Computed example of a mutant assay.
Amino acid sequence: MQPEKKLFTFDEIKQKLVNYCVYQDRCHAEVEQKMREFVLIPEAKEEIILYLLKENYLNEERFTRSYIRGKFYIKNWGKTKIKIHLKQKGITEKLITKCFDEIDNGDYLSIIEKIYENYFSKQKGLREYQKKSKTIKYLLSRGFEYENILQVIEN
């Protein structure tokens, strides 16, 4: 049995969604997911989305740029993993590619190097090639590209 949805006026719902967008940059999919919590007719949903867009509370490019910065500089994710997660949120390939200029190439390679050295040094009781292989797999799982990993290892 589904819990009873609380009823709000149109303006209250609109204000709740404004607050939701102000708290943190959101994409369309997140806002639409949040709207499912409320009882709304399709026209009201459309009107709220248009309002959020017009007042710049909802901005897909700003969301994408802040998402990329956060996942790279805070969580140290690679571009591949970031791209996959953004696609799951319904962001277009074109916009993702455009926004990847948020990541400085020098920073990107230095993060790979830092993670590589850190992870490699923690491997105990393994031969050199096993440590290297395990570390490369780890970096791939973090979303870094094989070519960039090799470039860092060779330098």
Rank of each mutant, 00 (worst) to 15 (best):
K16H: 09
L40R: 07
L40I: 06
V39D: 11
D25Y: 14
I74W: 04
I153K: 05
E93F: 10
I111S: 02
R127S: 15
I103F: 01
Y116R: 06
K134Y: 08
S121F: 11
K54N: 08
F72S: 04
K134Q: 14
I41K: 15
P3G: 06
A44Y: 08
E61Y: 05
T80L: 11
K87A: 05
N105G: 13
E113L: 14
E47Q: 10
T97I: 12
C99L: 04
H28N: 11
K124M: 09
Y57N: 02
E47C: 06
I111G: 01
G106W: 06
K131Y: 02
E30C: 06
R69N: 10
T80H: 07
D104W: 03
E46Y: 09
L52V: 02
R62K: 13
S141H: 11
C99A: 09
T80R: 08
N118Y: 05
P42G: 03
S121K: 15
G78L: 03
L109Q: 13
L53R: 08
K89E: 06
I103T: 04
L40A: 09
I68M: 02
V18N: 06
E154N: 14
I136F: 10
Y57P: 00
K114Y: 05
Q123T: 02
K124L: 10
Y57W: 07
I68K: 00
Q130F: 09
K94G: 09
A44I: 07
V152Q: 03
N105A: 13
A44E: 14
S66F: 08
K132Q: 15
I149W: 00
I103R: 01
K122N: 11
L7C: 12
W77L: 08
S66P: 05
K45V: 00
I13Y: 01
D25R: 15
F100R: 02
G125D: 07
D101R: 12
T64S: 05
N59T: 12
K54D: 09
H85S: 13
R142M: 10
F38C: 04
E37W: 03
Y20C: 07
E55L: 04
E12P: 08
E46Q: 13
Y119F: 14
A44N: 13
I48S: 00
I149E: 00
I13P: 00
Q151G: 12
T9K: 12
E12C: 12
V18M: 10
S133V: 03
I13N: 00
N148F: 07
Y129R: 10
E93G: 05
K132R: 15
K87E: 09
R26K: 15
P42M: 02
L109K: 13
N19W: 07
F38D: 03
N59S: 13
